[in-house]
C-alpha cells in the first residue's frame, strides 16, 4: 500500500474525502430540488435525481472507506493507537480517521436523502 501511494501518510485530503462527498451530495440535491420544483412543479424528476445521486454518493463513500480501511491496515497488527512519530503511525491514523468519517458520511447521506422517500409533493 505504501509503495503505491507514498504520500498518503501526509495527506489529510484522503481523510476528508468522504465528508466532502456528503457535503456535495447535500448541496447538489438541495439545489436541483429547488430548481426542478420551481421549473417543473412536480418532484418526480427531483426524487429520481436524489435516488441516483444518493446511490452514487454511497458508492463513492464505500470506495473511499475501503481505501481508508486498507490504509489503516487494522487486520495486519490490530493497531488503533497511532501515537508514534513515524510514517506508519501517521498513515494508519489518517486511514483510521478516514474510515470512521466514511461511516458518519454514509449515515449523513442516507439521512439527507430520506425525506425524498416520504414526501411526494413540492410544496
Amino acid at each position: 500500500m505504501t509503495e503505491e501511494t507514498p504520500f498518503r501518510h501526509e495527506s489529510i485530503w484522503h481523510m476528508i474525502a468522504a465528508p466532502t462527498v456528503w457535503t456535495l451530495h447535500f448541496a447538489i440535491i438541495y439545489a436541483i430540488t429547488a430548481v426542478e420544483c420551481s421549473k417543473i412543479g412536480t418532484p418526480d424528476l427531483a426524487r429520481l435525481s436524489i435516488l441516483g445521486l444518493t446511490v452514487l454518493a454511497l458508492a463513492l463513500i464505500c470506495w473511499i472507506a475501503w481505501r481508508a480501511w486498507v490504509q489503516w491496515d487494522y487486520l495486519d497488527d490490530q493497531d488503533y493507537v497511532h501515537d508514534k512519530p513515524t510514517v506508519e503511525a501517521r498513515r494508519e491514523f489518517l486511514g483510521h480517521a478516514g474510515f470512521l468519517l466514511s461511516i458518519a458520511s454514509a449515515i449523513g447521506v442516507i439521512f439527507v436523502a430520506m425525506p425524498a422517500l416520504f414526501i411526494e409533493t413540492c410544496l
Binding site: F111, L117, F118, I119, E120, L123
Partner: peptide, 20 residues
C-alpha cells in the same frame, strides 16, 4: 443512536405528507 435516530426520523417524515 443511529438506530434510534433512524426510527425517529422515519416516524417524523412519515407524518409530513399528511400536513400537506
Amino acid at each position: 443512536p443511529v438506530i434510534l435516530l433512524s426510527i425517529l426520523l422515519a416516524y417524523a417524515l412519515n407524518d409530513m405528507p399528511r400536513q400537506r
